[in-house]
Design a protein around this nucleic acid. Sequence first.
DNA 1: ACAAAAGTGTTGGAGATACACCCATGA
DNA 2: TCATGGGTGTATCTCCAACACTTTTGT
Lengths: 233, 233
Amino acid sequence: MSLPLSLHLSVDCVVFGYDDDGLKVLLINQKTSAKDDDNQPMSQLPGDLILLDEGLDQAAQRVLHELTQIRGVFLKQFMAFGDPNRVKDLKDRAWLQSVRNLPDQRVVTVGYYGLVSLQDFDPRPASFAGGVNWVELADVGALAFDHNLILAQAFGTLKEQLESQHISFELLPKKFTLTQLQALYEIVLDKKLDKRNFRKNVKKMTHVVPLDEKQTGVMHKPAQLFSYEPGKS
Amino acid sequence: MSLPLSLHLSVDCVVFGYDDDGLKVLLINQKTSAKDDDNQPMSQLPGDLILLDEGLDQAAQRVLHELTQIRGVFLKQFMAFGDPNRVKDLKDRAWLQSVRNLPDQRVVTVGYYGLVSLQDFDPRPASFAGGVNWVELADVGALAFDHNLILAQAFGTLKEQLESQHISFELLPKKFTLTQLQALYEIVLDKKLDKRNFRKNVKKMTHVVPLDEKQTGVMHKPAQLFSYEPGKS
DNA sequence: ACAAAAGTGTTGGAGATACACCCATGA
DNA sequence: TCATGGGTGTATCTCCAACACTTTTGT
């Protein structure tokens, strides 16, 4: 039986991005040390150790910014992952040894999920520290550590909280059409919705307000634009 | 800016217990060192540091058992608490110094909520390491560290998940009446429910099955007993 | 017989679902 | 004028809320 000892704590951010193509997740490539064998580098969620004097939410914002240049997005804690062997897998050892002082130290991580509008936020993050990619959810392959598990849990949480928490608007441009909002719901909830009924429901949401503005440059009847007003009711 | 350093990780368990008197939470008294000034000892949630080679869920079960003799209850992680100052408050320093090797070390904690039936589980825990008490939710005073916050969050989570997660049955005896089930719902959700409508809804839950058994020893019409069958649908 | 909680159906209203056509724009 | 998605109302059904009396036991 081992003593209670110190360990490392990290945050990992599962950032979902949405545009008309669908729902994507932000992944970074591990920078493989130059001399490394060049199988393609492994992908992982943006995450890193927390600093000694910062809070968890703060750490998540900092780490995401440092690794991807994205700043100030909605990020919410959803679960801690503490399997004692979660960073012990063979496939992950080389990379850990190249970046950590104590590569064998146990690491517990706190998962955050984040939401971004790819359209007007356009966080095409400066490639830095490897590479940063938006990957379609369906195209996500094997990730480092237990990051596939973390991603799956984050997506589950997103589904659960989409309706109750007003978070859909984080994924949309500031000005959006009802069709965009509906498409987002359909993707996340993975079911088709009826247009008229959907709009009836949106009319009841007092925090979704119509703007005096319409879509332009489309080759069909331009849609009314709406925006999200968190203040309202 | 400080370096990423090791820190301590703990688990804290918010164990709710239910009987006909209502909903209670399990608290322990901090063992004050003998020479200590004897203001009444401070109460806290059962919690302790995790060991180096155990998972989080496992740690929660172990810690709860060590501190309260309770074993094998439903425990579910709900949130990590990582404010860098959460164990730095003056009121908590004396106790930390008496029990920890590194009393100044930052501690991040993972919160678990648990559910127990006080009736047939009857976990009147052996008094050990101070004292163990079931305290009515309304009577909970100031707790050590940020434990009031943790308790509040746990109760919020319980409310949210009571209906969706089949967890009400953890709080009831193995054999229960529909009136008991309804009373539990009324306490947790803090609203009165209609008896007939409630029973209509329960009839739809295929995992609540009637037994060939009735209440005995009551001075009124004895109620049908039911039990929870997790297997069913 | 009485007290005390168990058990049981019906009705009305609100909210959800299903469904099809005309409209404004750019090409 | 045509193609494309935007925008709108009604009928039905399901689900939820409200409501009161009879039954069984112990004393």
